[in-house]
């Protein structure tokens, strides 16, 4: 038997009994970042394939939301910093080994493009708002139009973007993949936490992010064909996610003791119920079944599986952030 006791007082906030410095803001940011990455990935891919009229919501409208999501995410990130006034230090350097540095620079690119993209589709956005009956949001499009009339530089930028949209689409596609994958790699880079420290976490976060993106489109699109296509894609993504999750847990179970203990958090430990019942059950399996039933002709409101997938994606990040910090090497 071995027992270790801390003799001198060290009840520093966020360190004992285990490191806990990241919580709700970081998990929410990881969710919003993944969701934005997913939406932009579909928008750019379908645009490049020349299907903007077949998938109008995906290509033209949905990116408008990504800008909002990314701005909320950025606010949460800055809110979570402990030395906030020095945040600009992120942009005085680029550190190739630090995923957070990659993320900071990627976010700059993504926020600029995710603003320009919807600005270049302002007519379609107006039409969508009218079709949906969201006339109260008219002020957004009106404001942008006024800006376009009054400010020459603004008009020039929007026209320039519209003209070279295809080139920008490739850049944005690349950035959105980095954004989606980096949120997972961010966590897996911490070898002090065995639960995070596995190479499947990056692909798993990307898949989950893209899945929430497809669910979001499926939920808000007003085009039946688009909804069906997204629901098929989402089913494939959910299946991939399940495969990755089982793979991740198998890998940890087959690893050294610290990794087995990490897996135990989900296999009998305190995150078992929330992980398997609420995330895997209600966030992956149930929406998969609902989407399959809808394809078979049952009438299921598309919002139901979509919202389940979105809540599942958020829960997954909360679980990974909280459980990961509890998984440590025994000192």
């Amino acid at each position: 038997m071995e027992e270790k006791l801390l003799v001198t007082a060290r009840e520093i906030h966020g360190l004992y009994p285990h490191v806990h410095i990241w919580g709700f803001p970081i998990a929410t940011y990881l969710f919003l970042g993944g969701l934005a990455a997913g939406i932009l990935l579909f928008a750019t891919i379908y645009y490049i394939k020349g299907k903007e009229d077949e998938m109008p919501f995906t290509v033209k409208i949905a990116p408008l939301f990504t800008f909002i999501f990314i701005m909320i995410g950025l606010l949460l990130l800055v809110y979570d910093l402990h030395h906030k006034l020095y945040v600009w230090q992120l942009f005085t350097t680029f550190r190739i080994e630090s995923p957070m540095s990659w993320g900071a620079w990627t976010l700059v690119g993504v926020s600029i493009f995710s603003l320009l993209w919807p600005l270049s589709y302002i007519d379609d956005i107006e039409e969508y708002l009218h079709e949906r009956g969201w006339k109260r949001l008219d002020w957004i499009t009106k404001f942008i139009r006024t800006l376009e009339h009054k400010c020459k530089i603004f008009r020039f930028i929007v026209l320039f973007f519209r003209k070279h949209r295809k080139k920008f689409a490739y850049i944005l596609l690349f950035l959105s993949i980095i954004l989606g994958i980096y949120t997972g790699i961010l966590l897996s880079a911490f070898n002090a936490h065995p639960l995070w420290n596995n190479s499947i976490l990056g692909p798993l976060f990307l898949t989950s992010g893209v899945s929430t993106g497809s669910a979001f489109v499926m939920w808000l699109s007003n085009n039946k064909k688009e909804r069906t296509r997204m629901s098929v894609i989402d089913m494939a993504l959910i299946a991939t996610e399940l495969f990755f999750i089982i793979h991740m847990i198998m890998g940890m179970q087959a690893g050294p003791e610290a990794f087995q203990q990490a897996a135990h958090l989900f296999l009998g430990g305190e995150f078992t119920v929330i992980f398997w019942v609420f995330f895997v059950g209600f966030g992956l399996v149930l929406p998969f079944i609902l989407e399959a039933m809808e394809l078979k002709g049952f009438h299921i409101p598309p919002a139901l599986p979509a919202i389940l997938v979105l809540i599942g994606g958020f829960l997954f990040r909360m679980i990974m952030v909280y459980a990961g910090q509890m998984s440590e090497y025994p000192l």
Partner: peptide
């Protein structure tokens, strides 16, 4: 201290819990 933004990445990265947030915010 003047370059630290207080993001906590290093605190998460350290297996020895050797780092902490100073009350002034930096690590």
């Amino acid at each position: 201290h003047d370059e630290c933004i207080g993001c906590g990445a290093c605190i998460e990265a350290c297996p020895y819990d050797a780092r902490y947030f100073h009350p002034e915010g930096y690590v």
